[in-house]
């Protein structure tokens, strides 16, 4: 049995344009946080959606999670195992944060659950607490800031207890403090639950310091994959981003990417 998340023969076309052509990627390891890197339009989000089974029509991929073939599961069952979190923030609706978590939890149920929802409420509250926003439970979504809604979205996703979590730019609306806080939380929860977490990231310094396995893409092709310090190098940065950059070691011994210029 293969551990982790692996996608093979991923092909996605938008109309006549081929975005991904027979790409194979992984395995993304369990218990660790992985990142998809690359410039705009390199196919990161498309790849993530294809792994989740939400890709455009005509998309095709074989996805194996801990030895199970996800691509043969019915979509609802598949989202229970492997959950994708879109980049768009949860909409500003007139729902309390707590209710939105309960709704995400019940998204696959048809009948209204029993009236006693105390357990579900407790679980939702614990999940909000994981992301440090338990105090927002009774607030309405249309009163929150973008960053707060992003945290709610993360809590909704993790609250479904998936075996694999696919996050499309989960830090995009967060300030510096919360970017690091969320990375910490995700690393801790990923390890504690021994799940696979893959995220699309733009910040290379966060990637090199706070992820364990990176894949760097350009034009729908994989340029490099492996440990962050092996993947993020002056050579790959030049190939993918057309920049001249160095990976320096800071005074505390941590890697840091310095960009010297274009080309």
């Amino acid at each position: 049995m293969t551990e982790g998340l692996r996608a093979e023969h991923v092909s996605v076309r938008y109309g006549s344009r081929t975005v991904l052509d027979d790409l194979s990627v992984g395995p993304f390891p369990r218990g660790q946080v992985s990142a998809l890197l690359g410039p705009n339009g390199s196919g990161k989000s498309t790849l993530l959606r294809a792994i989740a089974g939400l890709g455009a029509d005509g998309g095709h991929a074989t996805v194996m999670l801990n030895g199970d073939d996800l691509s043969r599961m019915p979509p609802a069952r598949r989202t229970q195992r492997c959950l994708y979190l879109p980049q768009a923030l949860p909409a500003m609706v007139h729902l309390q944060v707590l209710e939105s978590l309960l709704a995400a939890q019940h998204a696959l149920t048809t009948l209204p659950p029993a009236r006693d929802e105390d357990d579900a409420v407790d679980a939702a509250l614990r999940m909000l607490d994981v992301f440090g926003i338990a105090n927002l439970a009774m607030q309405y979504m249309d009163e929150l800031s973008g960053g707060q809604r992003q945290l709610v979205g993360l809590a909704q996703a993790l609250g479904r207890n998936p075996d694999a979590l696919l996050l499309d730019e989960p830090l995009s609306a967060l300030d510096l403090h919360h970017q690091f806080a969320v990375m910490d939380i995700l690393r801790r929860e990923t390890a504690r639950r021994n799940i696979v977490t893959v995220m699309v990231l733009h910040d290379l310094n966060i990637a090199i310091r706070m992820t364990d396995y990176d894949v760097i893409l350009r034009d729908g092709r994989i340029i490099a994959a492996g440990a962050p310090t092996d993947v993020i190098t002056p050579a790959t940065l030049r190939t993918t981003y057309d920049i001249t950059a160095r990976v320096e070691t800071c005074s505390r011994g941590l890697p840091h990417i310095m960009v010297d210029g274009l080309g």
Partner: peptide
């Protein structure tokens, strides 16, 4: 909460 989010939640 959004079409894409609903789809991703199954």
């Amino acid at each position: 909460m959004g079409e894409e989010r609903a789809a991703s939640l199954g």
